[in-house]
């Protein structure tokens, strides 16, 4: 079955059943492996991408539901987002496996809330697990990118 998706500003046609989660289409069909698998049940956030600018879990998004939706993956940020620069500046990543998802949640947060409070950060980021426990630096890097002074 063919489906057409809008990924990182380009229309792409894939051969996959409509119930196939976007995550597996991105990774296995399109080779966009920056988006990670961590749980498959919307618990960990490793698979986070943007759908029309909102952070969603791609493991729970069947491609059949995404016609006309603009999808942005970590690759779509092209390494130019201030959040990515802050991540490098503060050496946020440890193993790094969760970080694409963290960055997609953080960029979606800043798009809507340019100067987030600690509470805003907790609310936006608590769906993203980091087993390495880089939370402190994730928080600091979000504030750095937003130009708000760390508490």
């Amino acid at each position: 079955m063919a489906a057409t998706l809008d990924i990182n500003g380009k229309p792409v046609t894939v051969q996959a059943a409509p119930e196939t989660p976007l995550l597996w289409v991105l990774r296995d069909e399109l080779g966009l492996t920056g988006t990670k698998y961590g749980c498959g049940i919307a618990q960990c956030g490793a698979c986070t991408v943007h759908a029309n600018g909102t952070a969603i879990r791609s493991c729970q998004a069947p491609i059949g539901s995404l016609a006309g939706v603009k999808i942005t993956t970590i690759e779509g940020l092209e390494g130019r987002h201030p959040v990515q620069a802050a991540w490098v500046k503060l050496d946020v990543p440890q193993c790094g496996y969760c970080q694409s998802g963290q960055i997609m949640s953080a960029t979606a947060l800043l798009a809507k809330t340019p100067k987030p409070s600690d509470g805003d950060i907790d609310a936006a980021m608590s769906g993203n697990i980091c087993r390495c426990g880089a939370y402190q630096r994730i928080r600091a890097a979000i504030k750095d990118a937003a130009g708000v002074v760390a508490a």
Partner: peptide, 19 residues
């Protein structure tokens, strides 16, 4: 760290990504 950029851009290669 030498790997922060790769890990902040989704380009660091993990076993899961091997194709």
């Amino acid at each position: 760290r030498k790997d922060s950029l790769a890990k902040a851009t989704g380009t660091a290669r993990f076993t899961q990504d091997v194709h």
